[in-house]
Structures are given as structure tokens and as C-alpha cells.
Design a protein around this nucleic acid. Sequence first.
DNA 1: GACGTATATCGTAGATGAGCGATAAACCAT
DNA 2: ATGGTTTATCGCTCATCTACGATATACGTC
Lengths: 113, 113
Amino acid sequence: MTPRACPPTPTVDPLSDPDEELARLAAALGHPARVRILRFLLEQRECFAGAIVDHLPLAQSTVSQHLKVLREAGLIRGKVDGLHICYCADEVRLARVRELAEAMLPTTVGGHS
Amino acid sequence: MTPRACPPTPTVDPLSDPDEELARLAAALGHPARVRILRFLLEQRECFAGAIVDHLPLAQSTVSQHLKVLREAGLIRGKVDGLHICYCADEVRLARVRELAEAMLPTTVGGHS
DNA sequence: GACGTATATCGTAGATGAGCGATAAACCAT
DNA sequence: ATGGTTTATCGCTCATCTACGATATACGTC
């Protein structure tokens, strides 16, 4: 019974170089805590930052730092909701990750004979 | 007329934690030079390390370092061929990246109405 | 064996990242 | 305005990453 999905605010500077773009996205995913945050957000659909802090064995400031990295990569979005900040995964952006990963692999592994 | 595909030697310690696994793979992809190397290898199907060095604006030792990171992540494999070392992308491992990325997204973004 | 070639590793300097506690900023309630 | 709550930012330390030149290792040739 979550109130609402976060509003669309995907503002990431559009990289001209696709290698750069993939590298940046991958780097943002390159830490287990950030993967956990992302997975948690996808499970919960959305939640306050405090819930994420409670969910991880890290200090509040550290989690906030990881959230910043994910935010700057465009993978999550935050919306102020009174005292809290409501975070949610940016599924459009995640789809882009998938798209880039799929573009790297011309065909599925299929026949390796 | 490439001599042969590299032999299968995918020896990466099997991580129990899928978050860790994804984070490690993403971290290996988290540098533009490494993305370029990987894309180059997929285009060329396989090539000697020297060709990769020539293809990038980096010192030989730096490229060798990046190759090591990719190797340790299991994303590429190297086979000694006389004086050279023949590198190729490990498509099984790359498929795993895709698999993990897809598992993160329960459904495609599809309907955003 | 001596020499040239190809690749990896070492050593180092500078940049970036991870983690924390402390503090600031923004908000709500009283 | 004061005080409590939530999140972001600062300052710091320690570790890791990136890049390079120099050197080591392994191979093929002579």
C-alpha cells in the first residue's frame, strides 16, 4: 500500500560515449552495498532513507553517500515527502543498463560447439 | 581466419552472495578502458594483447593491469600462443552479467501509463 | 648461450573510494 | 522561537585504483 511511485526526474548528463556511459553505470553498481540498496528498493517499490539505513549494517552517513552515488548515476530518484525523503529505483535507467549489457552480447551464448 | 577460439577456462571463485557477485562483475566493467577492451575483443573475436595496447591510448603496463582485472573477474580469458597471448571475451561470463542484470528487473519497463 | 620480442609484475605517485563521527540543513511539532 | 527528527554534508583516516616507467619473465631465433 505504498503511497505513490516517485515522480520522473531522470536528470543525468547525457554521455556521448557509450563506453563511458556503461562504465559509469557499472561503477555505480560496483559495490555490494549499492546493489543491496537497489534490490531493496525494487522489492519495496519505494521507501524512506531511514528504512535503507536500518536494512544495512552501515552508518547513516555511509548509506547517504551510497545513495548519492546511485542518485548521480540516475539509478534511483529521491522525492521529499515531509520530513522524509522517499527513494525509488529508476526502472527506465535500469532498463538502460540491461540494454547496454545486451548490446554488448550480439547473440546469446547458445551454441558453443 | 582467426586460429581458434580460446579454450574454456572459467575459473572464478563461486560467490555465494549474488549481490557480491554482481558488484564484482560491475566493478570490473566500471572503467571505460575495460569496457573498450571488452568491446574490442567481442568485435575481433580474439586478439593478442599487443593489439589491445595499440588500440588504447594507454601504456602497455596499464593495459596489462586492466586485462588482469578483467581476467580475475572471469570476463576474459587468455591463452598462450607462442610469444603472444591470445585474449578473448568469455561469453558465458558475459551472459551471466546479463542474467544478473535481468534478474534485477522483475519486468521490463513496458507499461508506464 | 645471447639477443630481440611480448607480456606480466614491481614500485611509486596521485586520485578516488569507503567508512565513520560530528555537524549542518530542512522540516514538523509544540 | 525551541526542540526533536531525518537526511545531507564535512573532515578525517585508511585502503584501493589508475597510471606510468622500469624491470622481470617467458618465448623464439640466431
